[in-house]
Design a protein around this nucleic acid. Structure first.
Lengths: 158, 158
DNA sequence: TATTGTTATACTCTATAACTATA
DNA sequence: TATAGTTATAGAGTATAACAATA
């Protein structure tokens, strides 16, 4: 076994990787936020909440949304209130637990989200179309290791 | 030439890459923000501004800070004011242009930043130490392509 | 007692636009 | 006129903590 090929990241390299990753994310994210505001008069957290619901057609409870969006509960209430007021999502009762809601997209919400999602995908594809399919896959897998490692570390503490 | 190996990213793969990249960045960033607040009673933008100055010992003008931090000028004024009030940075006059300042770290600022930077590096190294040095390098290079591509696209518009 | 969700609050960060001073 | 920086403002986004209802 070649030990050199197994050596773990030295310090300055990890740091410059992080700074570059932060820059890349900010570049894409700023563009997405601007486009969402200009073209659909909405925000990234609102889009994110609707995206979560689109992936879960039966709806999600408030605390599930909170966990998936990585924000605290009060914020989910606020965003949900806005979307309910616009008829994009609805709160459904949960059988057997009168404290909880299931939030899901309305028909209008699905239609609205689909239109946004098509544009959103174009923006994202355009941000990464400098990479080949193989490179996208490599990046995806490398980031997967980082993500899993972070989750494992977080669980250690508990 | 193998066309398959050159094929560019198809749509859903780019999207799931972006979602994973966003998640990874948020995981690390949340931890950095929490640690900066708990251990040093400071924030990421303040740390970022000081980091820019540490890399440029002769100081930077406000508009240079604004560009590097990717925020508008008014915000740089606000953050700089806070750091000046705490004696961490200072505004120096620029010879030949009485409109501009050169902002630089004070001796106290350098000392304070060095202590923070040591801890910060530990947090970052810990976030990426699941990767080998080769993987860190590969990730760095792939993100470099994305970053340059984004810059090139932005220039196109102008 | 613990959990689900809401409310109230405060704070950081940000962009925009009007402004002052200087080039 | 254009540029450097400041000020004022409004809004997004967030966490915290106290609260009500239900488990």
């Amino acid at each position: 076994m070649d030990m050199e090929a197994q050596s773990h990241s030295s310090h300055p390299e990890a740091l410059r990787l992080w700074l570059r990753m932060l820059t890349c994310t900010q570049l894409v994210e700023k563009q997405v936020r601007n486009n969402l505001r200009e073209q659909f008069d909405t925000t990234l957290p609102r889009f994110d909440l609707m995206a979560q619901l689109q992936r879960n057609p039966d709806g999600l409870k408030m605390n599930e949304l909170s966990r998936r969006m990585m924000v605290t509960g009060g914020n989910v209430t606020g965003i949900t209130d806005q979307l309910v007021a616009e008829g994009l999502v609805e709160r459904m009762e949960v059988d057997g637990d009168r404290r909880a809601y299931r939030v899901r997209l309305t028909a209008h919400g699905r239609k609205t989200f689909d239109a946004m999602a098509r544009q959103h995908e174009d923006w994202i594809v355009s941000s990464f179309d400098v990479l080949t399919a193989q490179e996208v896959d490599a990046l995806y897998k490398l980031l997967g290791k980082v993500k899993e490692h972070h989750h494992a570390k977080t669980l250690e503490i508990l």
